[in-house]
Design a protein around this nucleic acid. Structure first.
Lengths: 347, 347
DNA sequence: CTCCTATATTACAACGTTGTATCAGGGATT
DNA sequence: AATCCCTGATACAACGTTGTAATATAGGAG
């Protein structure tokens, strides 16, 4: 079927090893021979067999990305960034979905399918600190995100605390000092919610503003409707606030939505900021201010670290890398481009 | 490093081929031998080398999914469904992003990386009918979505016309007969927008309602903000309508948002329906009625057809398969669970 | 007790590639 | 002019698996 080195060699009139040498840019090949071989390759449309190459070399040219679900916008955008970064280095990405489920996450770690790739980018959700010892894989691995800290494994993550603090500072700088929080996790310390809440509290503390638990909404799910429900609850509670910090963009959008429906103007009455810089924040009404946690940098860094680890399996000690973040100020806090609502015109 | 058949054979005290026979469930293996071998496999933690297996067998156990961008929610959810369906058959999915760009799409078709998989699920966006002849790949391929019709290649798609017609019928059944459209593509015939508009027109025609171009908003981009802008434009135009059909969910949400901001109640004043059944439609305010185009079925069918094609490369003639769809009626048309807005409580 | 068949195991080759070792030729050095 | 070294090409083996063909063992019939 497909042409092999031998076929090319026959056509070019050289040994099949010479063809291999041409392909791998070995030094000692005469220009004449090289062009003869190249002509034969073109003529036959020869493509090196990747399975054979991989058997011989021990490398596949692929990496695995394991995430909870692509359905969740954050992970879809993370996967997008990872694929783009991998593509830039000539790598293919193979995706596993764990559903954020502890069992499936452990299963992925020991799956024979991991062999199809040279390494694993693993974004666990169901595993807890107590599972740290189980987080071992037969291929080099880089962890993405929070939750698992101990364990001798490279780790790339966002600066949750500092970024949340910057988001809060952004609101404080605008003169808001009653900042509600939507999406806290009760009692959590090391998860995204716990860290972000900590950043929020640090920002308040730095300006001598007391933390007020009555304007913090707790919940365990981060869907848009949860943000909406939380905001309804806050409004019903009768507490006052002039800004909202959503633990992620989806929550912020749900909250913003309810605020507007209740007659508040965003940002004039209440400023809103989210977290994640999802693509959709660029298209909401008003566009949503948020924090870009450095998703692209996470992807690129993770791949760089993974490749290093693949090339030097027992090189340096495991690294702990935090990416740079950026507050992205849009209309929901700055209010630059508010679109006037047209009056109803009958139905 | 990793154990091989030979290592297992040495431990079990049999020939390495016998070990292979055990693994591949060959008939003539004595139970005693089998258990000896299995013990050795367990002891060494033996895992078959996939590269070698793939070199020998010619199969990889992976398929490639090529989509424009995972950032776009529709494709993220499609990928989610494809990965789940592949997983159920023991296949791994390898994802390529084309950016919806014609050049990149052609590049993917001839990429050597395709070799890492047994087949391709291809969802083109940039390619036009005139490129049909170029749509050939070295591995079996199944096309997903519209745009390319000719070409002798299996094709799985949704029933755009019938589904759009059903969505429109749903609105008509509710007594709405001034149904605005958001997201038409001017002059398009075979794309999603063209087909869905056709379904809309068929539904009107069937009830003897005249098509009114003044309540159809044209645009080439399908972001939320486009839906919002279109709705502002419709309102400004002063035309009347009692329902909106968004060509996709994102547009519908943008439109719904502007409607509400302008003081209309959804669905009391204006009912809204979208298309795609994105996960987020379950969490919007109100939850969005939409059409489930059978994404899960598309994924499962595409994989089934692809596997058939992989096993019998020149089997039957190329198939053209359309999945079943379902109108998903939620609050934006039925209004069952409208949440009362709480009155503002100062800031 | 021998022959034959069915069963169980083995030996060998092949998939297509690349690394190592080997070998032929030509120019520079002695 | 003979030796040496470097260039350029080749032969061989190996990566780990599976299919095919061959062989060894056991059980039943003649």
């Amino acid at each position: 079927m497909a042409a092999t080195l031998h076929d090319v060699a026959r056509v070019a009139g050289v040994s099949f090893k010479t063809v291999s040498n041409v392909i791998n840019n070995h030094p000692h090949v005469r220009p004449v021979t090289r062009s003869k071989v190249e002509a034969a390759i073109a003529e036959l449309g020869y493509r090196p067999n990747l399975a054979a190459r991989s058997l011989r070399s021990g490398h596949t040219g692929a990496i695995t990305l394991a995430v909870p679900q692509l359905k969740l916008p954050y992970f879809a955008e993370l996967a997008d960034a990872v694929i783009a970064a991998a593509e830039a280095r000539g790598l293919v990405v193979l995706i596993e979905q764990t559903g954020g489920n502890r069992e499936r996450e452990l299963e992925v770690l020991s799956s024979p399918r991991l062999q199809m790739s040279d390494g694993l980018l693993f974004s666990p959700l169901g595993l807890g600190e107590e599972d740290a010892a189980l987080v071992k894989s037969e291929v080099p691995m880089v962890l993405l995100g929070e939750r698992i800290f101990s364990g001798d494994c490279d780790h790339v993550t966002m600066q949750n605390v500092a970024a949340a603090r910057a988001a809060t500072d952004h609101l404080l700088d605008l003169g808001r000092n009653r900042i509600a929080v939507v999406g806290a996790h009760d009692g959590e310390v090391i998860g995204s919610a716990g860290l972000r809440l900590r950043g929020y509290r640090e920002a308040l503390a730095a300006r001598g503003i007391a933390y007020d638990d009555s304007i913090v909404a707790y919940m365990w799910s981060w869907h848009r409707s949860n943000g909406a429900a939380a905001m309804r609850e806050l409004l019903a509670r009768g507490v006052t606030f002039d800004a909202v910090f959503g633990m992620n963009d989806t929550l912020a959008q749900g909250a913003m939505r309810v605020l507007q429906q209740a007659g508040y103007r965003v940002p004039e009455d209440v400023a809103v900021i989210g977290f994640d810089d999802l693509d959709e924040t660029r298209y909401s009404l008003p566009t949503l201010s948020t924090v870009d946690p450095g998703r692209v940098e996470i992807a690129e860094t993770a791949i760089r670290v993974l490749l290093e680890r693949i090339m030097h399996p027992d090189g340096s000690a495991p690294q702990e890398i935090e990416t740079t973040f950026k507050v992205v100020a849009r209309e929901s806090t700055l209010g630059q481009a508010t679109v006037p609502a047209h009056p109803p015109s009958g139905s």
